[in-house]
Nucleic acid binder design. Structure first.
Lengths: 142, 142
DNA sequence: TGGAATCCTGAGCCAATCACTCATGATTGA
DNA sequence: TCAATCATGAGTGATTGGCTCAGGATTCCA
């Protein structure tokens, strides 16, 4: 029942991006260094984030990543769904999952559903902007 | 971000136990068969449940397991915390975890905290009795 | 009193996943 | 043309999950 480290890293890195005033692209190396991560690992995470439309990239010298949308428009929930694949506590309540046959009789489904709904409600309106207002340069010991 | 299958199995099995009118011990073999599980695997789960005080066991012929408390007194949240070890989306908000040094600056902690609280709130008052009222003999395809 | 039914315990195993690293290529600016 | 950057895919070592296997301990009952 743990989120993966990708979520932590991705969230922190995006918050760091959001904290920049200038709209200049930030090279991955810099972000990775701040977070105490290898550039290559963070690269993988940013690939996903780019494909999902959270950041855009500029290649070449003076390139890097920028937020593709304003921090106020980025929902933590969406971010986590991207990084985790899915924010469901159990397979049978995943978004793309076809309902299993026994739904009307299933004891556990109601629990998983309620859990999922509560999570969605909790962070469904939280934006990157809210979060990024706490300073983030520090790295976290794991 | 998935719960383990132990949770599903444990929950279903306890619900099945709760569904029995008679207070006679139910042998594991019977429960395992109903759930379509190996006896030995369910045994491991019931060990935990017994140690945590959810069920009590009777050895020997005509032995088996019974609920140690009334279904109305068994909280799903407690059950899941037992089966999952901990219901925290991230290490740093686990119950026994000492606060990490950077708390006041940490961007992500607030997210994990909120997630955890919402889950607790969602199922914190749900009891086994509520759940067990849906019939449970059916097995679920995974 | 012995054997069958049950719970109890610990070890082991295989496949999947996680958190990365390695190697190399493609694009762009100066 | 070269250095800085992103892009991509393969590989790897450790951990975890979901079990199985093997055998023991306790209790009931004929």
């Amino acid at each position: 029942m743990r989120l993966s480290a990708r979520s932590e890293y991705g969230l922190r890195a995006l918050a760091a991006l959001a904290g920049r005033e200038a709209a200049e692209p930030v090279p991955l190396r810099e972000l990775a260094h701040t977070e105490g991560l290898s550039e290559q690992f963070l690269e993988q995470i940013f690939m996903e984030l780019r494909k999902a439309g959270f950041v855009s990239s500029t290649r070449g010298a003076h390139g890097g990543y920028t937020l593709a949308r304003r921090p106020e428009e980025i929902l933590i929930f969406d971010l986590l769904e991207t990084l985790e694949g899915d924010l469901a506590p159990y397979e049978c309540v995943a978004t793309d999952q076809p309902e299993c046959v026994q739904v009307p009789f299933c004891v556990t489904r109601q629990v998983w559903l309620k859990l999922r709904e509560s999570m969605q409600q909790a962070i469904g309106t939280m934006t990157l902007a809210e979060i990024a207002s706490t300073r983030t340069w520090e790295t976290v010991s794991r």
